[in-house]
């Protein structure tokens, strides 16, 4: 049965998985980066440490990074499901996961500066909901760290200084600028989720949603697939490297989505995800049986 307790238990496990185990595609991309970097370089040393850390976190079932981020989830649910119950269950799960040290108490009252102590707060966790035709509930979770969230940015085209017009070449120019602005501060090598179009809210919503895509997938829109490939090549020629130590591995993935826009606006929104690209997903059938997804 899909009771509240069933939801809470499943979501605690979902959070544990996200916080302590990296998805296989991310591990593979980090390994490929390590092999690419010169022996004895700081870049290679950083990636060796990162991969040691990934192994250790999984073995100890402990957080990969102490900044366990904002839990952001995309929930698809069948007609008749209570969104309020799902929201309450996720909030409960965040508190339990914090008590179990899968998460750090990571919510601070903005006005008083006091930590709420239990990991939950206003808009923490943050959930997106979508009703669908399937009978099951699917939850896709990311843990979005603060350091990388701080280097996220929204450009408004045209951008005169970067000579970026309202076309895909303009998009390429601002995206490369954002990577240079970020340097190693977002914990490079990162993954970029990008949205072209939309407004200031929907742009960031979609750019974060792009982070759910597996690194090895190909964009179904041919011109966006070309843009992603070109951006990967260019960004890795910037020489920023892991942690900003210099090197050839600056980004692990770049994923671009599109929303429609008003005639007056042309936003390019970039969400930067650190190398600790923590995501996990689960599907719950009407009987409450969980299937873990990648």
């Amino acid at each position: 049965m899909l009771t509240k307790e069933r939801y809470v238990d499943t979501f605690v496990e979902l959070i544990r998985r996200a916080s302590t185990e990296l998805p296989p595609d991310v591990v593979l991309a980090l390994q490929q980066g390590r092999e690419r970097e010169a022996r004895g370089s700081l870049a290679r040393q950083a990636l060796v440490t990162i991969l040691d850390n990934v192994d250790l976190a999984k073995a100890k079932s402990a957080p990969i990074c102490q900044d366990t981020g904002t839990p952001v989830a995309w929930v698809s649910y069948p007609e008749g499901t209570s969104i309020r119950q799902l929201e309450a269950a996720m909030r409960e799960a965040v508190k339990e996961a914090t008590a179990k040290s899968y998460l750090r108490p990571n919510a601070v009252d903005t006005l008083t500066g006091k930590n709420t102590g239990d990991g939950s707060g206003r808009a923490i966790p943050f959930l997106h909901f979508e009703e669908w035709d399937e009978p099951k509930v699917e939850v896709r979770l990311i843990l979005k760290g603060g350091g990388c969230e701080n280097v996220g940015v929204q450009y408004k085209l045209p951008d005169t200084a970067l000579q970026a017009g309202r076309d895909l070449e303009g998009v390429r120019r601002v995206v490369l600028d954002s990577v240079v602005q970020a340097q190693g501060k977002g914990c490079a090598p990162g993954v970029l989720g990008i949205c072209i179009g939309g407004d200031r809210v929907s742009g960031f919503s979609e750019s974060k949603c792009q982070l759910l895509r597996p690194l090895e997938d190909t964009n179904p829109v041919p011109e966006l697939a070309d843009l992603e490939a070109r951006l990967m090549k260019d960004a890795n020629e910037l020489g920023i490297g892991p942690m900003g130590f210099g090197g050839q591995t600056t980004v692990l993935g770049i994923k671009v989505g599109v929303l429609d826009r008003l005639p007056a606006s042309y936003f390019v929104t970039i969400s930067y995800m650190c190398w600790a690209d923590r995501r996990a997903a689960v599907s719950l059938d009407p009987e409450g049986v969980a299937t873990w997804l990648n």
Binding site: A46, T49, I50, D52, N53, L56, A57, K60, A62, P63, I64, C65, Q66, G145, G147, G184, C187, M243, F245, C274, W275, A276
Partner: peptide, 11 residues
């Protein structure tokens, strides 16, 4: 500089 995100190695 410590390696960012390497929370287990450092702990």
């Amino acid at each position: 500089h410590a390696v960012g995100g390497a929370a287990q190695v450092l702990a």
